[in-house]
Nucleic acid binder design. Structure first.
Lengths: 363, 363
DNA sequence: ATGAAAGCGCTAACAG
DNA sequence: CTGTTAGCGCTTTCAT
């Protein structure tokens, strides 16, 4: 019909000139209509829209990007994990990006892969994104500097201090420390003498934040700081930690850096013959969907993923669209401690240490 | 320097002509080098690469897409949920897309939103993707037909029968039924007279598949089919179902359509004074990271997300790059039943019904 | 093995 | 309010 499947393009998709011809206007007017530009009479607009509908016209994004120098897309760098935290954040980001009228490109970094964040950012830059979101990065040690020079778009770093310096870096959601502090204080308020911490993997800024918050809470009350137990976010690591902790009669309260580890921890404690929360209290972090339904229902901290993503993206888009203006200020999200049945006052002091050295599986 | 920050474009990014000039070759040769085209002498290639490196040259994707008619990007439509299944699948898709040399664009559909899949596909088409992946769609009833006409790129539908008809539709991973069947048969092999099913929300094809598999297993052994209990994937719904099921002494085995529901179910059963697996066996689906660490460790089915994504994407890309060729055939993934401690033979028949009507909370 | 010329389909100035 | 004229930076086609 119109055109015999032009060069590279797949089929002969209608172009704006085709619409213009059919509507009896100039090509530029079609462009005006589709960009909601002013100065188009209602009548002409109607005719254009009708013609476009008839032809099944849809703007060519590549041409738009080439001509305007903007792609209206935002890239996000995520860890390639289905962990509840990162996954929830990604969903929040997608929604926020869409709400702001942008499209989303996604690149995962694979833990332990050489390229890391630098490579992912580079790939996004190749794709021509207008802005970049780095979600829950981890500190891989030093390859971040390499990117910095080339990054000429605004960058938003979520749930962490900036992992690298680029001309225009924003941050959002670095509030895990205050949430962790609240969790720890909840345990202290219950009269526990101290609180142990089952930490996440330290390359993760999110894990460090929680560790810091726990430290701050303990320091704030002048409590001794027991040695940190290291986990890797998995329930398996929580279980391993639990076996260790179960044999120490001084352990009456544990703050785990995420719910999965808390669940593994509880399992190990239970198998060792300890009761949660009567013998040991446990607090998790995330409020995963199952947290309320494990045994016992888990006291945990709910993270405001959507709010963080929304606030961050609003500021990122502002930075994109107003390169010269001062960045908007971050609004701080609310801390949300969800108290369930896994926390209680410590056992009476006289009975502490009671049969705590033998592991008698119960299941 | 080169050029004072041309019209729309942000800064004066170097173009291929700049590289060509510096390397003392034609622009076309630069293009050849970057596209790994043949007929470029090693010496020239080296000079071009060096010049490009010096200038910090990076190809402009919009121009490439405009000139070639291909964007080298694949769009994925996902539900906006952090549920383990969909999130895992998304990670697998990202990886597979990247491995195939494409980039990924993501659009979520929000359950209950009017636009639904049709809107998401449309948005992806606007963005000019070369292919589309629809991940774990749900049947929203009828708005799919609207898209079909306009979809001129290959579409891969994961974990479901095609939700709409488009010229070139592929499917992958619709194997939940055989996995569900295996799960049910495991319970039957343990001598349970029948198996109850805690189903997922029926708009989800994934939920329907599991229901079908359960039915097939029961039918295959000539067992009675008890009424289906409806859930919504959440642990909360599993808990609600558990309260119901706990009062029925005929319930000795339950196959839950996902792990979260299984966990909620177990909690309700436990609170009702029933033991798992001594009184009631439970099988989940997904093998979430916590499945092995809840009490009791959950027998469940592990889904081969990565394999499904990889196989599907290989075929999608084949369809993109060989429009005329016959589609590749799907390779079927392996079923992986993980037997843990939540399943056992039913209680002795003489004692069945024992104290099953009163709910005496424990834990 | 390399180069020249001609667009891809749009947006951005500038005229009317 | 509307139209004209130039490119955006590549890939493609065809010459050498």
């Amino acid at each position: 019909m119109t055109r015999p499947a032009g060069r590279g393009g797949r089929s002969a998709a209608p172009r704006s000139v085709d619409v213009a011809r059919l509507a009896g206007v100039s090509q530029k007017t079609v462009s005006r209509v589709f960009n909601d530009e002013p100065y188009v009479s209602a009548e002409v607009r109607r005719r254009v829209l009708e013609a476009a509908g008839e032809l099944g016209y849809r703007r060519n994004n590549a041409a738009r990007a080439l001509a305007s120098g903007r792609t209206r897309s935002i890239g996000v760098v995520t860890l390639g994990t289905a962990l509840y935290g990162p996954a929830s954040l990604l969903m929040g980001i997608e929604r926020a990006v869409r709400d702001m009228g942008y499209t989303l490109r996604v690149v995962n970094t694979v833990e332990g892969e050489p390229a890391g964040i630098a490579g992912a950012v580079d790939s996004l830059l190749d794709q021509g994104v207008d802005g970049i979101v780095i979600s829950e990065p981890i500190d891989e040690g030093g390859d971040e500097g390499e990117v910095s020079a080339r990054v000429d778009v605004p960058v938003l770093v979520l749930s962490a201090p900036p992992p690298f310096t680029a001309p225009r870096v924003l941050t959002a959601g670095g509030c895990a420390d205050v949430m962790a502090r609240a969790a720890t204080e909840h345990l202290l308020d219950l009269e526990h003498l101290t609180v142990h911490h089952l930490a996440g993997p330290q390359p993760w800024y999110a894990a460090r934040d929680r560790l810091d918050g726990w430290r701050a809470a303990l320091a704030g009350r002048g409590r001794p700081e027991p040695p940190v137990v290291a986990g890797d976010w998995s329930a398996a690591s929580g279980y391993a930690a639990g076996r260790e902790l179960a044999s120490d009669p001084d352990v009456t309260a544990v703050f785990a850096a995420n719910d999965d580890m808390a669940i593994g921890l509880i399992r190990a404690l239970t198998e060792a013959g300890l009761r949660v929360p009567e013998d040991v209290s446990v607090v998790g972090f995330d409020d995963t969907p199952v947290a309320a339904y494990v045994t016992p229902p888990l006291t945990t901290v709910r993270q405001p993923f959507d709010a963080v993503a929304q606030d961050g993206l609003k500021r990122l888009v502002h930075a994109i669209e107003n390169p010269q203006a001062d960045p908007l200020v971050a609004s701080d999200p609310s801390v949300d401690l969800v108290v369930r049945a896994s926390t209680a006052p410590p056992p009476p002091r006289t009975t502490r240490g009671h049969g705590r050295r033998t592991a008698s599986p119960s299941a």
